[in-house]
Design a protein around this nucleic acid. Structure first.
Lengths: 241, 241
DNA sequence: CGCTTCATTGACGACGTTCAAGACATGTGG
DNA sequence: CCACATGTCTTGAACGTCGTCAATGAAGCG
């Protein structure tokens, strides 16, 4: 029920060392981070943060999947971001959370007490620069998603989601032959991310399957026989220039 | 046709001094910025940047309205951001633009050559910290817009847009009695921002008008008799916690 | 004036939502 | 082992919101 704390483990052997907020830190800075970090694990479907809550910590996702979401009193929900390993949670400089964060699968976080982290941002340029870089990357990703939400059809949304998920979870080494994606999200969670209903998501999965663009293995495993074909369904035109 | 350069003018008397990327600079840092800045003006409907172009400069909007937008070969367009005075254009650290930027009205920019600005970001913490702050604010704003695009009805979208525009353009001093908003966007530009068609925008304006929520004066001027009533139409629940 | 741009309105239809039923897998207890 | 509950997913039918296509009107400008 309650999240439990893990014992410490060294940053050097951290699986997200290369990509997280600490990516560009030298060993000295890493030591400072190490001093204020602690691990915390949440079970699937547990809330990590509620909108309006005081933000006690910021964190990096070490393992698992979480979502940033916004929901209204009348029950509408929109997922605003998918948090995968190395993604950053929280906003230094803000007191209360603006959005809800929830664990989709079991999630382990590398947490930093917010006040202490904010001091670090002030004093170690590598952290603030990496944070800026990540924020700007996130901004670009979110803008692509705005196009998806505002202008894409249901079919394109599904194809885009699968491509995004594929790119973010499948490492280059694994990319041989037919690609397989193991979704950690339910149909409903995908619907919330894509601005659709779960029924529409299900229907489009069926349609893409009957059109031969994807194959389904069980409920959550998607086989992509031809990644380029799926990419074409996503309706993005790439930058050639 | 071609954008023209204005003569220099001092940062001290700059109208966006308090809110732009230079907001937290001390006089020393300001001098460095002053050394590399130049003004540039674009006529209404001129492109400022094309996706794929090399980004020669980054800039602050001094006056006028511009938009960040994404368009596809098949003619779909989604506006990703509204750029008003003090907003920042461009991404330090990136070589080519990911999105199109276009002037909606006549726009004056305070430009900085990108390479020189990037050096400044490295060396003056006030600039990089302010940039981070602005990026994080932008991220929050964009996330709110994702909810709008994914989950709001056409009517709520229009009401939300009017509220947003009101908040961003009407200063507290002007807020007495019935509020008036002078839109710089056409129905089509609003539609592109809201993920709608211009016809739907027009219909919802008419509907809000006949429902007494707004009054129209000419095509672009909107009178809001009761700001709270409009806010209610926007379908946001505020953070009470 | 005619031309262009922008806005309004109507008729119609498509896409996605809503409501509802049923399938399937997993887990629990009798 | 079966009965039953639960969570997830699929599929169908009816509906409604918004998009498409088209005609008209209003305003600004050479």
């Amino acid at each position: 029920m309650t999240p439990h704390h893990q014992e410490e483990s060294r940053c050097e052997s951290c699986p997200i060392r290369e990509r997280a907020v600490c990516a560009t830190c030298d060993s000295d800075e890493l030591q400072q981070l190490e001093a204020i970090k602690y691990y915390r694990t949440y079970e699937a479907r547990q809330p990590i943060m509620w909108r309006g809550d005081r933000m006690e910590f910021v964190a990096s996702v070490v393992s698992g999947t979480a979502t940033v979401e916004h929901l209204t009193e009348d029950g509408r929900k929109q997922t605003l971001g998918l948090l995968l390993p190395s993604d950053f949670i929280g906003r230094p400089g803000r007191d209360t959370a603006l959005y809800d964060v929830a664990a989709v699968t079991e999630v382990t976080l590398c947490c930093f007490r917010r006040k202490q982290f904010e001091e670090l941002v002030q004093t170690t340029p590598h952290v603030s620069q990496r944070l800026l870089e990540m924020a700007l990357d996130e901004l670009d990703a979110v803008r692509d998603w705005m196009f998806l939400l505002g202008r894409k059809t249901a079919r394109e949304k599904i194809a885009s989601f699968l491509m995004m998920y594929y790119r973010r979870t499948v490492t280059p080494e694994q990319q041989f032959g037919a690609a397989t994606v193991d979704l950690s999200l339910t149909r409903e969670a995908m619907a919330d991310y894509l601005g659709l209903t779960l029924e529409t998501v299900s229907r489009q999965f069926s349609k893409l399957k009957s059109d031969g663009v994807i194959k389904l293995e069980g409920k959550r495993k998607v086989i992509i026989p031809d990644v380029h074909a799926l990419a074409r369904e996503a309706g993005d035109d790439s930058i050639i220039a």
